[in-house]
Design a protein around this nucleic acid. Sequence first.
DNA 1: GGTAATTTGTTCGTATGTATC
DNA 2: TGATACATACGAACAAATTAC
Lengths: 244, 244
Amino acid sequence: MTTQVKIDRGAGIAVWRQISEWLKTEIAAGRFAEGARLPAEADIASRFEVNRHTVRRAIAVLTSEGILRADQGRGTFVASAPISYPIGARTRFSEIVSGQDRTPSGRMIGSSVEPADAVIAEALSVSAGAPLLRIETLRVADGTPVLVGTSWFDQARFPGLVAAYAETGSFTRALELCGVPDYTRKETRVTAELVAAADAALLGLEPGQPVLVVESVNVDPVDAPVQYTRTRMAAERIQLVIEN
Amino acid sequence: MTTQVKIDRGAGIAVWRQISEWLKTEIAAGRFAEGARLPAEADIASRFEVNRHTVRRAIAVLTSEGILRADQGRGTFVASAPISYPIGARTRFSEIVSGQDRTPSGRMIGSSVEPADAVIAEALSVSAGAPLLRIETLRVADGTPVLVGTSWFDQARFPGLVAAYAETGSFTRALELCGVPDYTRKETRVTAELVAAADAALLGLEPGQPVLVVESVNVDPVDAPVQYTRTRMAAERIQLVIEN
DNA sequence: GGTAATTTGTTCGTATGTATC
DNA sequence: TGATACATACGAACAAATTAC
């Protein structure tokens, strides 16, 4: 049963908007399944007796909202549902992703040693200017890049961390090797920004798209700060979930 | 004492980037206080012996990051720190804002009755298509618009809610009048999007700026869903804080 | 209230360095 | 080596908004 919707011209609502609303409700109602291909633009156009450009405009706004995904030459598809990313004391990327029947992976983009700026020094309880390890990582779920993260560690405390991370590919295990048996997330701050050029390339995002920026501090069992992380997440592919 | 910094040409780092880093560290070090006016572009340009365009580019990246704020004719200012918005079971806008020595206010933008779409019906445990009250609000802190929220309620359960909200200006008190003595936040989902045109006008944002989108469900003391809210927050003015 | 000075915003044009093929 | 594309940097002039006198 497809809802019979007519275009209402001269109703003060642009035709492209009426079509985009129709598409939205069809998708929300599940009549176009996740990942399904939409009818060709020409078919939608003839169904509503409008020009194909009108349909294109309707589709364009939904792609910019991340609801649709248009691949040149292949067609337009209902975007896959965003990954739900629970924010809690024991957030671990790989566990979250595998819990949603997706395959996680990740790799180190780079690492360096740099002096602590005022904000990070405060968060890690080191003096400003103290040398910090910086590790840049890219996390992927089911082949789609989802987030890039920058983590800072006190170099004096964890001299062997970069090697340990390069070997294990996991902060949890790398920190174990460096004598931190467990860690928990203490505070999390969330904002949104426009994607930086370098991140856009890594995440496969168009410039001008929004990213969620999550800054958090991980502490060891005795509550000493261990890791400061700034994560940029492709907003259209992820949804943070806070349970109360 | 202002740090003496020289521009290093031919060092592989663009001049505009060196200036933007310099500005960033000056601000982080507190040498330009929050709300303070920066030297005029022309002055910074002559201080570093570069073109004004070069300074403008440095300033542009910092405005896009929300660190600076440029007003034509007035000058360029260090942006005020974002409001910290704790997400918890008892989140109340007015308490959060007054707790940070800012003056909260708000007004109702509009209200209507509309049939429940699939997602909201599920969240509010009503059948799809059931009539819902939709209330649109704008929240302001210290004269700056911070967020626009759309809330949905089951009309059958709260027929007098719009009037109660219009009178009290508070969901807490309006729900009290409708027989809900207290409510708590059950689940919160966070994403980011580009601001919609209508919201941009309300929030005083440029089109193309990111907004944090927070969707949440409030439940009454017996855990029945009462209110579904979709809030759009000016990302540059707010920071969500999740304590663990 | 009017005017000039100040400051950011916009649009031309020109030249140079850098990376890629 | 040359051709090309792109980002960077400079210069000049003017528009638009705000402030100071």
